[in-house]
């Protein structure tokens, strides 16, 4: 049951991720991205990481993607120009290299893991909101604080880059 659900979510994630890149209409890209994020949330659920799954849906698929869609609709861009042509030797080289890379990782990984299931430790303990909060504010307190500095810098940058009449 879990395994078949995993394969359904994984296929959805990969197919929609490909659609994000391949389609030439930005709106389709954005909507495909939402589907990718939903499928990932599903995989998190299967791993019993309930908190992450919910956060994934609320923040990524919800807030951020809505912003994306608003910006796309406000700017109202036309269809993207085709910039990948199959006759271009560079495209071919890049495609071949990517396929080789994926194949390499796949052949290395396929023999050595179960797709899902045996995660280290008792999973039911790890994925709950309570436990995430506890680790985040004890063991990972320092990274958490550095992340807050990171956000501050990003904020400063956004203001500096976009504010009118700065001089």
């Amino acid at each position: 049951m879990t395994e078949s659900l995993f394969f359904i979510f994984a296929t959805m994630a990969i197919v929609s991720a490909l659609t994000v890149v391949v389609t030439r209409n930005p709106i389709y890209s954005a909507v495909s991205l939402v589907i990718t994020l939903f499928s990932l949330a599903g995989i998190f659920l299967l791993l019993e990481a309930y908190f992450l799954a919910v956060v994934q849906i609320i923040i990524y698929a919800g807030a951020i993607m809505v912003l994306f869609l608003f910006v796309i609709m406000l700017l109202n861009p036309g269809k993207e120009a085709k910039f990948l042509s199959l006759t271009d030797p560079r495209t071919l080289i890049v495609t071949l290299l990517s396929i080789a890379f994926i194949g390499m990782i796949f052949s290395l990984v396929s023999g050595s893991v179960n797709y899902i299931g045996e995660v280290m430790g008792s999973v039911e303990e790890l994925g709950t909101t309570r436990n995430i909060g506890l680790t985040l504010f004890t063991k990972y307190l320092l990274p958490f604080e550095i992340a807050s500095l990171l956000l501050l810098v990003a904020l400063v940058g956004a203001v500096l880059m976009t504010k009118r009449n700065l001089r």
């Binding site: 550095i146 810098v153 400063v156 500096l160």
Partner: peptide
């Protein structure tokens, strides 16, 4: 990693 990101974002700006 977070240090690297903090550095990188400051540098992008």
């Amino acid at each position: 990693f977070l240090g690297l990101e903090l550095l990188s974002i400051s540098l992008y700006i």
